[in-house]
């Protein structure tokens, strides 16, 4: 029996070529992502100063900070998380506990996953039609409502996934003691999945802290200090959007500083979520 050496060689070459291309693709992709982070941290840290946290957003040509935008973002995001989390957890509980195999659940899962990746600008339009058009004014309430709609699907998805990880033996043990279903869920499964549910909330915070599109025509933005929820309120992403589009150098620097703040928040939340998840698994 004789082997054709040429076939061997050809296969070896082809293997080397494709593996090289894969490595090249990986390097290509990672380099761009690295460049973005580098440029964000470089420009962001250069523009960061105490003023960013203490002064209001400036008029064109003046210096200022992002204090009102930071406070606005924190207020609206907190409201959205406070409002969205209970609904999300309850709905996720139904999907994993009461209606795990119900026909309704399949439908709800499908719709929820669509909402999870639906364009956020559409959510903005929806809240505009629902609230802003009826109250005739942009308001922080409307902004928070838009963010709530983005929070709910994230929490539903993670809550369901985390509850499904709870072993059935735990539920059965509790039920065997005579505990009614609601008590089993509240005292046993929720407690067993607590870390996972908190992870979901953290991910939701990470998700909404960078959302811009739904805030543009709900909370609108406000150049001045305002904590009145019935009035327009500024937020970090919306200020970044307006300032980056402007021709002023000072505003560009503030936009970079804001982008850095958002990214650090998001990364911190995601890393915390990941740590929480891994401590739970081990």
């Amino acid at each position: 029996m004789s082997f054709d050496r040429r076939i061997y060689k050809r296969r070896k070459h082809r293997n080397a070529m494709w593996l090289f291309l894969s490595t090249f693709a990986a390097a290509f992709g990672l380099i761009w992502l690295g460049l973005i982070l580098y440029s964000l941290f470089y420009n962001g840290f250069n523009s960061l100063s105490p003023d960013v946290f203490t002064k209001m957003t400036p008029a064109p040509g003046e210096s200022g900070g992002l204090a009102n935008a930071i406070v606005g973002s924190v207020m609206m995001s907190s409201l959205a998380v406070l409002a969205g989390t209970p609904f999300g957890i309850l709905a996720g509980t139904y999907l994993a506990e009461y209606g795990r195999y119900a026909r309704l659940s399949f439908f709800v899962r499908f719709v929820n996953d669509i909402l999870l990746s639906a364009p956020s600008i559409v959510v903005g339009l929806f809240i505009y039609e629902l609230i802003v058009a009826n109250t005739h004014t942009f308001s922080a309430w409307a902004g928070a409502a838009a963010l709530t709609i983005i929070v709910i699907p994230v929490v539903v998805r993670t809550t369901e996934n985390m509850l499904l990880l709870v072993p059935n033996g735990l539920r059965e043990a509790a039920a065997a003691l005579g505990a009614p279903r609601a008590a089993v869920i509240k005292a046993v499964t929720w407690r067993a999945a607590r870390a996972g549910i908190v992870t979901g909330v953290l991910l939701a915070v990470a998700r909404i802290s960078g959302e811009t599109a739904p805030l543009l025509f709900t909370a609108f933005g406000n150049q001045f200090w305002s904590t009145d929820l019935n009035h327009p309120m500024s937020s970090l992403p919306q200020v970044i959007f307006n300032f980056a589009m402007s021709p002023y150098e000072d505003w560009h620097r503030l936009a970079w500083a804001g982008a850095l703040l958002i990214t650090i928040t998001v990364l911190a939340m995601s890393i915390a979520a990941r740590l929480l998840e891994s401590t739970k698994r081990s």
Binding site: A91, Y94, E97, S105, L115, L125, E129, V156
Partner: peptide
């Protein structure tokens, strides 16, 4: 409690339907 979780589920559907109707 079961009814509560069920209605939260319906809220997801209502949001979806609401987006379509409002738009």
């Amino acid at each position: 409690f079961r009814w509560l979780t069920w209605s939260a589920c319906m809220l997801v559907l209502v949001i979806f339907a609401g987006v379509m109707i409002a738009l």
